[in-house]
Design a protein around this nucleic acid. Structure first.
Lengths: 375, 375
DNA sequence: ATTATTTGTCCCACGTGTGCCAATAAAAAC
DNA sequence: GTTTTTATTGGCACACGTGGGACAAATAAT
């Protein structure tokens, strides 16, 4: 999951604002040459592991690092050419130069590594398949949300395949995903559907519009639910019997990938123009997080459901992969609530602000696996 | 020549000691992922060029940057995926994000560019084929000399081919080249000869030992001149008639590559135990630089020749390629003197200290092409 | 002496990068 | 207003380099 994961900066100790101020060189590099930063961390990790285990052979080193021996070989050859390690028949050892380099690099590597360790930690805590975080905080800068959107779009594209059905929810975050998505050609062998009917005021942030936009960029089919999101229960039941609607719902229920945004419960309820008594109810049951009409409390339990047309939670259970996209430290609590629910294989795309805030919340509650840093 | 060229650090403005102190992140990166800087500068240059010419198409951009259109396309595709540039039918433009990134990057890029521009400048001033500089100063740290040795060894290997004859001189610097050379297999299709007979006290720094060491590492043949370097003129003439010696000299004179170290005249003369009157003579004629027995004054003129067996200057003229290796700011004057002489295609491998010092000396003398920085 | 390490080599296949060419749209000329 | 020209982007086939797997040689430990 470090493929897209980006780095944060801690070099200046007290960490000046990441967004509006100047980004650090490492951040810029991460943006301009991400693949080489991966190479850098890989080689550093190799050196570091050797320094701990030396003398050590390629075999055990590969096993230790979770890579193949052949892959390691190329790197080892390079490192030897650089005079950083020496090989003998008992294994590989660091040369004095290598040792010195590892020590010097140690401090700098936190710039690169901190976010990815945090990603791993959160993935373990919430039992997520993967966490991808971009540096910055969406709360303070719009650029970060865009960046997050691009990271999500990139990841989405990497797991999409022909014949799949993609269901999307709404929100500004997912709108960013759609707009940063790089066009590709799926030859119509892909269907995009909204997970819900229309919602609220802004058309461009509705699930339907987002589905259409994504479909256009990927040259995919799309089906829309031309319905208001919040119908009365009776009305919803009636409408759901309409053949056209039924068909779209059928397709949506067979979705293999679900792309969803997460919102703070209060803000979401307000945006949906819920009645005061409903707001009070949400408050009463402790709803903090919301996603496509479902409200969750801090324990990840569903405490309220907006009567609506669209995917139901029981269908989500059958979805192969869930991609949750949300960021901003202010949303951390909501995200934590929603993600505590037991979704299928979930990948979270977020930002540094939300990531660190979530970890902070987990630690404060004495959450499971709240291990401390390992250096 | 930027392939091996490495970077110096100027970020902390007043530039603390590069060697003994902590190296900068960029230096370490350069060591661990050498191509990183190249890719980074390439992409940065693309962005910068677009920002100046936009909207611009790939064709003119490729011509402007001196690369092929297809090569550019890969980069352009990447930059578009990163959301830094946008393509339309009128050409490519920077997005607002791209524009911001270019501006932020601008300051940092000097870290990367300064050494390579300095390399280019020196190459122009001295009419060298190439200059490769490693960061640091050999005067202050032994590590730098090793690094320089590795850079030279790497470059040497890149131009070696089967059937060639390699002539080497002596000195600590070339000893470092030999010891950092990464073994390769030339199947005996390569011959290494010393450019001169033995010299001075330390066996490991003699041309013969170095030739033998290099030959061993490359699985090449080697021939030695089992002679003291400084014979009397008469004795030299006599010995040169010996069949065995003649044969080796024949081989040496057909050398296609010459690897030579450069020394400061005074230190060299002292190490060779010249007589006081000889020392006085050197002083009198203004000898400052020395290489394999030839002493040069500041103008690059030969002012003294050690009577000796080995290659003569007239043979050097026929050598295809000269690789000069020397570093340390204290040697700058000597290097400048020797390199001012009109050798055949010469590549200089040096370090930051010597490089900058040489440029300073050139500027002080109002040397040709002493242009100032272009920003 | 044997076993379990290690490094280094070889061949094959897959993927990425490269060079060439087609399609298209804006602009300029008529 | 129509046509021609000149720019642009995008697609496609091929080759080269890198990764995968198995194997051989060599050395320390049992």
């Amino acid at each position: 999951m470090a493929h897209v994961g980006q780095i944060m900066q801690t070099r200046d100790e007290k960490r000046p604002c990441t967004e509006s101020g100047l980004r650090t060189m490492t951040e810029l590099q991460q943006r301009l040459v991400p693949e080489l930063i991966d190479v850098l961390t890989r080689r550093y990790t190799i050196l570091r592991t050797i320094s701990l285990l030396m003398p050590v052979g390629r075999r055990v080193l590969a096993k230790e690092m979770g890579t193949t021996e052949r892959k390691l070989r190329s790197e080892v050859e390079f490192l030897r050419e650089q005079g950083l390690i020496a090989t003998s028949s008992v294994g590989m050892v660091l040369t004095s130069e290598g040792q010195q380099l590892v020590e010097e690099l140690h401090g700098y590597m936190h710039e690169v590594h901190d976010l990815s360790t945090a990603e791993l930690m959160l993935a373990r805590c919430l039992d997520l398949e993967g966490v991808i975080a971009v540096p910055g905080d969406s709360d303070s800068s719009e650029l970060v949300q865009k960046d997050m959107g691009r990271a999500a779009a990139h990841y989405l594209k990497s797991i999409l395949a022909e014949g799949m059905v993609l269901a999307v929810s709404g929100g500004t975050t997912l709108a960013a995903v759609a707009s940063t998505l790089v066009p590709a050609n799926f030859n119509g062998q892909l269907t995009v559907v909204p997970a819900r009917g229309g919602m609220g005021e802004d058309l461009s942030k509705q699930a339907g519009s987002i589905a259409a936009k994504i479909a256009a960029k990927l040259n995919a089919n799309y089906r829309l639910l031309h319905l208001p999101d919040s119908l009365g229960e009776k009305a919803a039941a009636v409408v759901a019997e309409e053949p056209e609607i039924r068909e779209v719902l059928e397709v949506a229920r067979s979705a293999s990938i679900l792309l969803l945004g997460i919102g703070a419960a209060q803000a979401m309820a307000r945006r949906r123009h819920l009645r005061p008594d409903q707001l009070a109810l949400l408050e009463h049951v402790g709803a903090v997080g919301e996603t496509f009409g479902y409200y969750f409390n801090r324990q990840g339990e569903i405490v309220y459901v907006t009567p609506s047309t669209g995917l139901k939670l029981e269908h989500i259970k059958r979805v192969g992969h869930v991609i949750a996209v949300a960021g901003g430290s202010s949303k951390a609590e909501a995200m934590l609530a929603v993600l505590s629910y037991d979704f299928p294989a979930t990948t979270l795309v977020t930002d540094e602000g939300a990531l660190l805030e979530m970890l902070k919340l987990i630690e404060r509650r004495g959450g499971p696996l709240a291990t401390r840093r390992d250096d």
